[in-house]
Amino acid sequence: MNVNDTAASHPPRIALAVGCPAGIAPELTARMLADSAVTSAAQIVTVGDRRVIARGAEVAGVSLDLRYITPDAPLPENSARPVFIDLGNLDPATISVGNLSEAAGRSALANFKHALALGLRGEADAVAFSPFNKASMRLVHPGYEDEIVFVTEMLGFKGIASEFNILPDLWNARVTSHVPISAVASLITFDNVLRGLRLTDQAMREGGYQAPRIAVAGLNPHAGDGGNFGREEIDVIGPVVAAGQAEGIICHGPLPPDTVFVRARKGEFDAVLTMYHDQGQVAMKLIGFDQGVTMLGGFPFPLLTAAHGSAYDIAGEGIADPGALRAALLLAAEMGARRRASLQSRWNSW
């Protein structure tokens, strides 16, 4: 059997962790499990509490046909129905929708850990999660900085990982992420920017781009205006772009941050590497908030979610837009299938 036959007969498996039970995660997860476009693209193995997903289905107004299993049961192959691993870790009646709670944070963390374990053991080709609420998770795990730090610790990962925001025709990567603005300039070093550029090129190739075109934004207004507004573009970012080009990366810059996304939207670039969180996030969310996907790139398996948060203000109303989470799961299916085929190809070559 060739790789294509294998991929067709064994669709990718996505481990999907239910996010914050006090937010929109349960209703969005339920919508995904009732969405034939999602369930036909991959074998979805959801991790959570069956009472939470039942409440989510009720809020979303969908009917679910799931195959429930216990945490220690083997995962069924090619189940005709989405599989749900019932951790039995939260009675939704014990929490208040739209409010922070330790119980909600503990449930979300447990779901995430279990899904990550499936990815680490090779039982899932990709891992995804519906929106978390970091504040609730910190009530249980005070050191919870963000998903990248948590996953790095959980997996014992020694490599480099970064967060990417993805729209259908545009990716955004960043050199620094969840750090204060006051600390950004000191982190714009040659090594850090080159690391971000290399990881962007690698992640996009894994995402299906054969030769991604990457725009590298400047740090300062007008990309420093020839040194009038700062020298990071001259001393750091420009040399990184030259080094990347010497390695065969298709990259351009440093470009003025206030116009680089205009050029990218017109099709000049496939991605923009920005220097800090809001430099790219604001632009990407204005362009396509309801379709935005967040990918944690660099880990041993694809890891994706919707680019928005837990939306406590509308939780329980059944009005949350499922577009971003659907896009995340469909991309996870594509990347998971590509990863499975690549591993199968290596296996066949031995």
Rank of each mutant, 00 (worst) to 15 (best):
M137L: 09
R138M: 02
V140M: 04
Y144L: 02
Y144Q: 02
E147S: 09
I148N: 11
I148T: 05
F150M: 04
V151T: 06
M154V: 11
M154C: 08
L155A: 02
G156M: 03
F157M: 13
K158V: 13
I160E: 10
E163G: 11
L167R: 07
P168A: 05
W171I: 06
W171S: 00
T176A: 05
H178R: 07
V179M: 08
V179A: 06
P180L: 12
I181P: 15
A183Q: 15
A183L: 15
T189S: 14
V193P: 12
G196C: 04
L199I: 14
T200D: 02
T200H: 05
D201A: 09
D201I: 10
E206M: 08
G207I: 04
G207P: 11
G207A: 15
I214A: 04
I214L: 09
A215Q: 00
A215W: 05
A215Y: 04
A215P: 01
A217I: 03
G218C: 02
N220V: 01
P221D: 08
A223N: 00
D225S: 05
D225N: 04
N228R: 14
G230D: 05
G230L: 09
I234S: 11
D235Q: 09
V236W: 04
G238F: 04
G238S: 01
P239Q: 06
A242V: 08
G244Q: 00
G244H: 00
G244E: 04
G244D: 01
G248E: 03
I250N: 04
L255P: 00
P256R: 00
D258N: 03
V260Q: 00
F261V: 11
V262L: 11
K266R: 12
F269S: 05
